[in-house]
Design a protein around this nucleic acid. Structure first.
Length: 136
DNA sequence: GCCAACGTTGGC
DNA sequence: GCCAACGTTGGC
């Protein structure tokens, strides 16, 4: 069963253009227990929206899980994990946070409800609405 | 184990 | 640049 997610990155730190350029990239640096749990639940081939936080505040592309959770190499203790993400495609239309907030069918979206969480699940229904808004 | 202080994230 | 939300830390 394929699950859907949304992952955030500040474009200043790591942008969608960089993700596209490298293809596959370790999704490191998550230091929040709930976000880390979401990472561990990701399965090979799961899809995720790539969202630019802070600057842009919009969904810009789609990535897929290319490797399931393993210890984050950027952290010594081994208690944090990361996954590998592969760039799949840019979205034809970027979906802004404002547009998501204005869409009644997206009520309860974790991105809005827990704005500080960097890795959040997206329900199948919400995924369908967001895909439609993104022009997919 | 409680809770105040503090730090960080991210929207505005 | 401000501030709300919320996670973490440390004193007790």
């Amino acid at each position: 069963m394929t699950a859907h997610w949304l992952v955030k990155s500040e474009p200043d730190a790591f942008s969608w253009d960089q993700q596209v350029a490298v293809g596959v990239e370790p999704w490191t640096g998550v230091r929040n227990a709930l976000a880390a749990r979401n990472l561990r639940e990701m399965r090979l081939g799961d899809l995720a929206f790539f969202y630019h936080s802070n600057e842009g505040r919009e969904i810009v592309g789609i990535v897929e899980v290319a490797r399931e959770a393993y210890p984050d190499p950027t952290e010594e203790s081994g208690r944090w994990c990361c996954v590998d993400m592969r760039a799949l495609r840019s979205v034809p239309r970027r979906v802004t946070l404002a547009a998501m907030k204005a869409e009644p069918r997206l009520e309860g979206l974790a991105l809005i409800r827990q704005s500080r969480l960097s890795v959040v699940p997206v329900s199948p229904a919400h995924w369908a609405v967001l895909s439609e808004m993104a022009g997919l």
